[in-house]
Amino acid sequence: DETGKELVLVLYDYQEKSPREVTIKKGDILTLLNSTNKDWWKIEVNDRQGFVPAAYLKKLD
């Protein structure tokens, strides 16, 4: 059920640097789980959840 889920576009590649982070690729469109922290957003990638720098993402309307 995708209702109410926010999507984000990945602006730059990011390689995870800790187990709490996930790797993302430029151009991916992913589900945003939590954006309350202005610097690190929690997203879902391939059934994995983790954090990436918010500056690497853009919210889609």
Score class of each variant (00 low, 15 high):
I24K: 00
P53W: 03
K17R: 14
N46A: 14
D1I: 13
Y12M: 15
G27S: 04
L30A: 15
L11Q: 04
D1H: 13
L57A: 01
V8Q: 01
P53R: 03
D13H: 05
K58Y: 08
I43L: 07
P53M: 02
K26H: 07
L60W: 07
T3I: 13
D1E: 12
D61S: 13
Y12I: 08
R48H: 07
N46G: 15
G50F: 10
E2D: 14
T31Q: 13
L11S: 02
E16R: 10
G50N: 02
V22S: 03
K38L: 08
Q15M: 13
A54R: 10
L60F: 08
I24Q: 00
L57Q: 00
S35H: 12
T3Q: 14
G27K: 02
T23P: 03
L11F: 02
F51V: 07
L57P: 02
W40R: 03
V10G: 04
L33I: 14
A55W: 11
V8H: 01
G50K: 02
D28Q: 15
E21L: 04
N46L: 13
L60R: 03
G4C: 15
A54I: 04
Q49Y: 06
Q49E: 11
K42W: 11
K38G: 09
V10E: 00
Q49I: 11
G50L: 07
N46Q: 14
Y12Q: 14
I24M: 07
Q15E: 15
D47V: 06
G50D: 01
K59Q: 07
K42L: 15
W40M: 05
D13L: 02
A55Y: 10
W41V: 02
L33Y: 04
L7R: 13
I24H: 01
L57R: 00
I29P: 00
T31G: 08
D39S: 09
K58L: 12
G27Q: 02
D13Y: 04
T36S: 13
Y56V: 14
V10F: 01
L7M: 11
S18N: 11
V52I: 04
V52C: 05
P53T: 01
P19V: 09
F51E: 04
E44L: 10
G27I: 01
S35Y: 07
K58P: 02
L60S: 04
K26Q: 10
D39K: 13
E16M: 11
D39H: 15
